[in-house]
Amino acid sequence: MNAALGTAFGAVGLLALAGSLLVGAPYAQLRGEGAPAGLRPYTAEAARGREAYMALGCIYCHSQQPRDPRQAPDAERGWGRPSVPADYAYDHPHLLGTMRTGPDLFNIGARQPSRDWHLLHLYDPRAVVPGSIMPAHRFLFDVGGAAGPEDVVVNLPGGGTAVARPEALDLVAYLLSLDHTYPVAPAEGSVP
């Protein structure tokens, strides 16, 4: 078994080296990081909305990690200052994303603070953003029924109304909570 064992041990050893460098060392470095003073924990509603964000797969088209202005014009697009590890103190799991088929959402709550805009955008994206390729989320709304006094009603552009289901309201609460415009110290040694 000598050669086989040697291969297996060598393979495990090198993976352990990689793991300690790429995961272990940053784990130790980042563990003590507290939340910035300006960052609030998610409300129960926003936390449920975050689950909806995951379950609906928003992450496959939207990132949450504005880049440094020296690297890319993210800030000029209104996506915010470069994010730092502390900004994600309450994020389990992380939702950094790797695609920008749609815009970065790290500060969508500050850029677009209207609940009605978000609800209509979810119901019919192309009604508010012509040319958008985002899927409509009409399944998060009830159409045609009578609205109760407590219901949140969306007025549709072509006439008619839709009632937002709790999941839609939670999701919008999460999107509105994405506001990281508070000041932070720039990340140490940040290089674009």
């Binding site: 995961v23 940053p26 980042l30 563990r31 994020d91 799991p93 992380h94």
Partner: peptide, 12 residues
């Protein structure tokens, strides 16, 4: 895993 460290594990 937590926050940004989770992203590192994710892509590793």
């Amino acid at each position: 895993h937590f926050g940004v460290e989770h992203a590192l594990v994710n892509w590793w």
